[in-house]
Computed example of a mutant assay.
Amino acid sequence: MQIGESTGHSRAGGNLVTTRSRMDPRPCGDDASLRRDVNPASCTVIWRFHDDKSGHINQTRGLVKAIAEITPVETFDLPCFSRRQSCLWWLGNQFPPGENLKRPDLILGAGHATHFALLAARRHNGGKAVVLMKPSLPHWLFDLCIVPDQDGLEKSENVILTRGVLNVVNPSRSQQQERGLILIGGPSSAHGWDNPSIINQIGAIVSNQPDVNWHLTTSRRTPADLVMLLEHLPLPNLTVVPHTSTSLNWVPEQLTHSSQVWVSEDSVSMVSEALTSGASVGLLEVPENYEGRVSQGVQKLRDLGWVTHFTDWDRTRPISTTRVNLNEAQRCATLLCNKFDLVRTV
Results as ranks from 00 to 15, higher is better:
residue 222 T to I: 04
residue 5 E to Q: 10
residue 174 S to V: 12
residue 157 E to A: 12
residue 224 A to Q: 14
residue 33 S to Y: 04
residue 44 T to A: 04
residue 115 H to T: 10
residue 240 V to R: 10
residue 188 S to Q: 06
residue 151 D to M: 10
residue 176 Q to T: 11
residue 82 S to D: 12
residue 60 T to S: 15
residue 310 F to A: 11
residue 95 F to N: 07
residue 292 G to H: 06
residue 334 T to E: 14
residue 297 G to H: 00
residue 268 V to Y: 02
residue 278 G to Q: 01
residue 63 L to I: 14
residue 273 E to W: 07
residue 12 A to N: 11
residue 46 I to R: 00
residue 39 N to R: 12
residue 228 M to G: 08
residue 159 V to I: 12
residue 189 S to K: 15
residue 122 R to D: 05
residue 169 V to P: 04
residue 120 A to I: 05
residue 328 E to T: 08
residue 187 P to Y: 15
residue 223 P to C: 10
residue 341 D to Y: 05
residue 155 K to R: 14
residue 191 H to K: 02
residue 183 L to G: 09
residue 287 P to Y: 06
residue 19 T to F: 06
residue 243 H to N: 06
residue 311 T to L: 14
residue 8 G to Y: 14
residue 302 R to I: 08
residue 60 T to E: 14
residue 171 P to G: 06
residue 258 S to V: 07
residue 134 K to L: 08
residue 182 I to S: 08
residue 323 R to Y: 00
residue 331 R to T: 07
residue 46 I to A: 12
residue 238 L to C: 01
residue 109 G to Q: 13
residue 117 A to D: 15
residue 281 V to D: 01
residue 111 G to N: 04
residue 122 R to M: 13
residue 95 F to M: 08
residue 110 A to N: 12
residue 31 D to H: 09
residue 240 V to D: 01
residue 153 L to Y: 03
residue 127 G to K: 06
residue 175 Q to R: 15
residue 37 D to Q: 08
residue 198 I to G: 00
residue 265 E to A: 05
residue 301 L to S: 07
residue 343 V to Y: 05
residue 78 L to T: 08
residue 127 G to T: 04
residue 290 Y to F: 13
residue 89 W to V: 10
residue 208 N to A: 15
residue 300 K to L: 08
residue 254 Q to D: 08
residue 42 S to N: 05
residue 324 V to A: 04
residue 68 A to I: 07
residue 205 I to V: 13
residue 196 P to T: 11
residue 224 A to W: 14
residue 154 E to P: 06
residue 221 R to A: 15
residue 244 T to G: 08
residue 179 R to S: 01
residue 170 N to V: 11
residue 162 T to K: 01
residue 150 Q to I: 06
residue 2 Q to K: 15
residue 194 D to R: 07
residue 63 L to F: 14
residue 287 P to Q: 01
residue 157 E to C: 10
residue 79 P to M: 07
residue 204 A to K: 05
residue 152 G to K: 02
residue 329 A to N: 00
residue 37 D to V: 01
residue 32 A to I: 02
residue 22 R to S: 01
residue 298 V to D: 04
residue 177 Q to T: 10
residue 193 W to Y: 15
residue 182 I to L: 11
residue 308 T to R: 08
residue 117 A to M: 15
residue 225 D to N: 13
residue 83 R to E: 12
residue 153 L to H: 11
residue 206 V to I: 09
residue 234 P to F: 02
residue 337 C to P: 05
residue 305 G to C: 03
residue 218 T to K: 10
residue 59 Q to C: 09
residue 343 V to L: 12
residue 61 R to S: 07
residue 67 I to V: 15
residue 80 C to E: 10
residue 116 F to P: 02
residue 275 L to W: 12
residue 246 T to L: 00
residue 128 K to A: 13
residue 144 L to S: 03
residue 260 Q to L: 12
residue 159 V to E: 10
residue 339 K to V: 04
residue 272 S to L: 02
residue 330 Q to E: 11
residue 34 L to V: 11
residue 241 V to D: 00
residue 292 G to P: 03
residue 283 L to Q: 11
residue 102 K to S: 15
residue 177 Q to K: 09
residue 37 D to I: 07
residue 41 A to D: 08
residue 11 R to P: 12
residue 332 C to I: 00
residue 6 S to M: 01
residue 180 G to F: 14
residue 120 A to D: 07
residue 169 V to I: 12
residue 276 T to P: 02
residue 336 L to K: 03
residue 157 E to T: 13
residue 230 L to K: 05
residue 106 L to E: 00
residue 236 P to Q: 10
residue 259 S to D: 03
residue 275 L to F: 06
residue 204 A to M: 03
residue 317 R to T: 11
